[in-house]
Design a protein around this nucleic acid. Structure first.
Lengths: 265, 265
DNA sequence: ACTCGTTTATGTCATTTGACATAGCCGTGG
DNA sequence: CCACGGCTATGTCAAATGACATAAACGAGT
């Protein structure tokens, strides 16, 4: 866990498992700018196959690594963290999940979660039992297509992170992550852009950043301060502010083409 | 490119684009131990949708980063390397592809290859034009299922690599990669196991290892030597030999459950 | 307002890893 | 057989990053 001693991870806040069944027509993903909503026929299918919604408070663990992977979900609202734990306690945060993302697909095949998932903010999820989800996907070509699409995107994200960990020095690495998060926030419509600057209000601790970037906690702290003083990225505990997006984009070689509209299920 | 100066990448050997149409019943993947072959109905579909085979000599680039992603392929024989280049020449090898793996799916959506692919050994590929492949997948639920399965596996592999880069020190990192490659070799039946030891005969340069693990070339070299002297991993230019699999498995915390039989297309 | 645990911050020092320079090696092609 | 280019190896030194210790800030709960 962030290179050296450390605390055990998420933990405060109460579990909150409200089971709701809001109709899909009121789905909060409906008119997110970067997402394409399913058509009415699809909505009906989804409504028939999903098992309901679930709300999770910030800090709560949603799926535990090693648990049976009998359900998947789409993120309706909120931001979550996906990570892998090694036996000795080291933790690698593998990706951050935004509204519209599909979580838990891997375990639908392996039977067991290869990673854990924790809510970074209060979160609402649309749940599917594993079997019903696979039904959906194999019965409806459009869903198959969309799931493959989402998988390909997730793969792409992981590859970008891999490049960051393998090739970027600490400073560039942190800047990359900040930018990546903000871009996803922009796309998802949860990060407002004001002129050349943007802000994503998601609380992420420096320890979590460290565990995502493979840096020590201390070094992460110092790098964050350096970026702040340089006026490039202001990453406080409560969110990320980038005063000049184009600057940071240039620094990390951001490819603006990389943000096509995403389907969701 | 492996942290500092360096050569430009692959390059020797002649391009060799034989277009064959061996029937699927003689497909070399047919009776690989770790793969499940498609049934006869599937075979017919595949035969109708694929555009033929292609042979590529060791060292040749198969797909260029940035090229139009108008085709995908399944690896029939051989081992390839998938990597991303940054503008300034840094290179991150993102994964190594084995027989049965599907390559090029990402670009089927984005239109443009986000990564390059180079053959590490002489290689045979089963080609699909993008459109025909997507037809296949959306028309036949079984194929959709298999493609999603393969995507999920690829994601899993990338996550493991991410853990290695983020959390493992050089030595463990190299050992991890060696083991991962050998395990895939075992599964695919291209690496013989003799008692407690196994050997994978795939030529990978230290520069390529360095670019996969995010280490400098020099440090990679030293780490390889250390592992060799310790009798744990003998990674010569021509292949990887692990004298005691269980030792290395213990060192990197290998999960033996993680090798289910793979479908292919 | 106080207390406690978590998070952020800072100083000092140790270690890992990278950079540079150079030499030997090995296969390929003339 | 030799020459060349890429790969591997080794020494020395520099830089980036990690470890440890400690303190200040912050937030939730009493």
């Amino acid at each position: 866990m962030h290179r050296g001693g450390g605390s055990a991870g998420g933990g405060q806040g109460a579990v909150d498992i409200r089971q709701l069944n809001q109709p899909c027509r009121t789905c909060p993903l409906r008119d997110r700018p970067g997402l394409v909503a399913p058509d009415t026929a699809q909505r009906e299918w989804i409504e028939r196959h999903r098992s309901g919604e679930r709300s999770v408070a910030r800090g709560e663990e949603v799926l535990r690594q090693g648990a049976p992977g009998d359900r998947l979900f789409t993120v309706l609202e909120g931001v979550l963290m996906r990570y892998r734990l090694l036996e000795d306690g080291r933790r690698q945060v593998v990706n951050i999940m935004f509204p519209g993302d599909l979580v838990g697909l891997q375990a639908a095949f392996d039977g067991e979660m290869s990673h854990g998932v924790t809510a970074l903010t209060d979160t609402r999820l649309c749940m599917f039992p594993r079997d019903r989800f696979m039904e959906l996907v194999t019965a409806q070509p459009r869903f198959a297509y969309d799931v493959i699409w989402l998988s390909a995107r997730e793969e792409d994200a992981l590859e970008q992170h891999l490049v960051a960990l393998g090739q970027r020095p600490a400073r560039e690495r942190v800047a990359y992550l900040a930018l990546w998060l903000v871009e996803r926030g922009l796309q998802t419509g949860i990060a407002p852009q004001i002129g050349p600057s943007a802000t994503l209000r998601v609380p992420i601790t420096q320890g979590q950043v460290a565990d995502m970037l493979g840096l020590s906690l201390v070094h992460t702290n110092r790098t964050l301060q350096a970026l702040r003083k340089a006026g490039q990225v202001d990453w406080m505990g409560t969110g990320i502010h980038i005063p000049r997006l184009d600057n940071v984009r240039a620094m990390v070689g951001f490819d603006p083409q990389g943000l096509p509209k995403r389907p969701y299920i």
